[in-house]
């Protein structure tokens, strides 16, 4: 075996220790944003440099890594990060949620329930849930410290005033263990309930903003709301056009230039797994006929 070009998982051991300390502190204080000395990574901000550093710090040689972007394993971002760790850490990768020990994600939580022993790493662009209304970092830190969270409801109030309902659909603020208000990263609010009481360890990394926070397994996570406008997740009128799944988060896919569209699982692994199990959606013709049709077109 030749000398690796990089230290295991790219970051040097000192840096990984520093990040692990931040992670441990975050686990000890669920929902609290721990500052850390975010490093330059060989990819631009916005590609998940925070998540990548967290993943690099927790990855071991025996881990199996899954990376998703908007639920898909095959988008540029996911493919690149997966390849990055395959190269720098030589770890096994997978697209199967159930097989992964570490899942790095951007904008989704997998549909398949996570289990104990799994770690999910969220890429976070803006970790501060109060920033929309209070731009001063000094002030928001004091507000977190003193549990002054009235402002977060001002945002929800504005939603209802303008749209008749809480129109925030992603990065929907949550309260952790009845203490810290936390930005769950830009996942759809559909995924918020999955964070509550999850047996998996949930870690959040914001590279540009240099913050790490965490939800240890079985943490109480409540989405904020009003008594007369309770939190509710998006509901979809139809099942997945490919795998016929209900109760999952669907993406709208435009199929032609004449207004044709279909709704399919955003979680590609979930969708594929169901199809392999024999589920068929309305948008998925019988395989033989489909081939013929495509050839004809």
């Amino acid at each position: 075996m030749t000398l690796p070009e990089y230290n295991f998982a790219y970051l040097d051991e000192q840096t990984k220790r520093m990040i692990r300390r931040a992670i441990l502190k975050g686990i000890a204080i669920p929902g609290y944003q721990v500052p850390f000395a975010s490093r330059e990574m060989p990819m631009p901000y916005g590609w998940g440099t925070g998540g990548v550093q967290v993943t690099a710090a927790i990855l071991g040689p025996d881990d199996v890594l899954k990376v998703i972007d908007q639920g898909a394993d095959d988008t540029t971002n996911a493919v690149s990060i997966r390849a990055f760790f395959a190269k720098t850490a030589n770890v096994a990768t997978t697209t199967k949620t159930a097989d992964a020990t570490v899942i790095q994600t951007r904008h989704r939580i997998p549909e398949a329930p996570l289990s104990a022993g799994q770690v999910i790493v969220y890429q976070v662009p803006i970790p501060e849930p109060l920033r929309f209304l209070e731009p001063r970092e000094t002030e928001t830190r004091v507000m977190h410290g003193l549990e002054e969270y009235g402002l977060i409801h001002v945002k929800l109030y504005e939603d209802i005033a303008q749209h008749g309902h809480i129109a925030t659909t992603y990065a929907y603020p949550v309260k952790v263990e009845d203490r810290y208000v936390m930005d769950p990263s830009p996942i759809p609010k559909f995924d918020n309930p999955k964070m509550n009481g999850s047996p998996a360890l949930q870690l959040f990394g914001a590279g540009r903003e240099k913050r790490i926070y965490a939800l240890p397994p079985f943490t109480n996570v409540v989405s904020l709301d009003f008594e007369d406008h309770p939190f509710e997740v998006q509901k979809f009128k139809q099942p997945c056009a490919l795998c016929n799944a209900t109760g999952v988060y669907l993406d709208e896919v435009v199929t032609d230039d004449r207004g044709g569209r279909m709704y399919v699982c955003s979680d590609t692994d979930h969708c594929e797994t169901r199809r392999e199990e024999g589920h068929h959606g309305a948008g998925l013709p019988i395989s033989g006929a489909q081939t013929a049709k495509e050839d004809a077109a």
């Binding site: 209304l133 002054e148 009235g150 402002l151 409801h153 001002v154 109030y157 504005e158 209802i160 005033a161 303008q162 709301d225 009003f226 008594e227 007369d228 406008h229």
Partner: peptide, 27 residues
């Protein structure tokens, strides 16, 4: 004032700060 949120939210902010969680009553 918070110039970028509505008049109603400006008035309601203190109520929400002391724990009022009923949109209709705040309004």
């Amino acid at each position: 004032l918070r110039m970028r949120v509505s008049a109603g939210a400006n008035v309601g902010e203190r109520l929400m700060a002391i724990g009022d969680r009923h949109y209709g009553e705040i309004r």
